[in-house]
């Protein structure tokens, strides 16, 4: 039996932590229906008007779409460049490997603003105009380590022998990747994509300095929060939480189908 310790104490503590995590989210949700100009007490009554306002707010809708666009771009970048990096780190010894690993991990510990300022200086030097793409490149660099660490950990766990067996049976590089490596890392890769997208979707620090004329959702909210705050802000956040839950659950169920295969 795995469980030990005072069950009711552990459960109570765990539930308190969950309550701590969800209290502001519940407050946020409740006040998205508040029939008042302000997102605070008193609660004047139930209304959908902030959701209606949201769907008429072109700036808000555009920035949601911009965030999705940037997030998808970040996912593509971190898969295209992160998976090869993870494979290189897993399979080969090469000079400078330790330094390469540190450089890759650096954006995790670095304040986003620092990544931002370095890239902004670089963009200004090469006269690259700030746009959604400059954000994408910045976030892609910062979040690539998520893909690299997740995929690397899975590759280490999988071991070498399946790939060796495939090579031993005469498979070429592409056949080994398609039949062994990719099926092995699929669920880890999916998880990394999910995490990279969700962090990108809510990213402010790197984005802050790299934004041109088009704003992502957090940047729009940031400018709103510094001026006047209406419950429309709560409505946006609430809507996104529900959409994301649906997406995550659907995605996890889709990927769970082949999750038990790697046990073998």
């Amino acid at each position: 039996m795995r469980a030990f310790g005072n069950r009711s104490l552990v459960t109570t503590l765990a539930m308190s932590v969950l309550a701590f995590l969800y209290a502001p989210i519940l407050v946020m949700m409740v006040f998205s229906f508040n029939d008042s100009q302000y997102t605070g007490l008193p609660f004047n009554g139930f209304t959908f008007r902030w959701y209606e306002a949201l769907f008429r707010d072109d700036q808000m809708l555009t920035s949601i779409w911009n965030s999705v666009y940037v997030g998808l771009g970040v996912v593509v970048i971190s898969v295209l460049f992160g998976v090869p990096a993870a494979i290189a780190l897993d399979r080969y010894e090469f000079p400078g490997k330790g330094m390469f690993r540190r450089i890759v991990m650096l954006p995790i510990v670095l304040p986003g603003i620092i990544t931002g300022i370095a890239l902004l200086g670089f963009y200004l030097t090469i006269h690259l105009r700030l746009s959604l793409y400059t954000i994408m490149l910045g976030q892609g660099t910062a979040l690539m380590c998520v893909t690299i660490t997740e995929v690397f950990a899975r590759l280490q766990q999988l071991g070498k022998s399946q790939a060796e067996a495939a090579a031993n049976l005469g498979a070429n590089d592409w056949e080994i990747f398609k039949n062994v490596t990719f099926p092995g890392i699929r669920s880890a890769l999916f998880g990394a994509m999910l995490i990279a997208f969700s962090i990108s979707f809510d990213e402010i620090a790197v984005t802050f300095l790299l934004t041109g004329r088009e704003n992502t959702l957090p940047m729009t909210l940031w400018s709103l929060l510094r001026r006047e705050v209406t419950p429309e802000v709560n409505a946006v956040a609430t809507l996104i939480v529900f959409l994301s839950i649906i997406l995550i659950v659907a995605g996890m169920y889709a990927s769970r189908g082949n999750a038990n295969e790697r046990e073998a």
Partner: peptide, 19 residues
């Protein structure tokens, strides 16, 4: 290269393709 050698190996941990 291993791919070109026509020698087949039976691995200790079987190394079957789980998918």
């Amino acid at each position: 290269p291993v791919t070109d050698r026509d020698m087949r190996m039976v691995f200790q941990d079987f190394a079957l393709f789980p998918n």
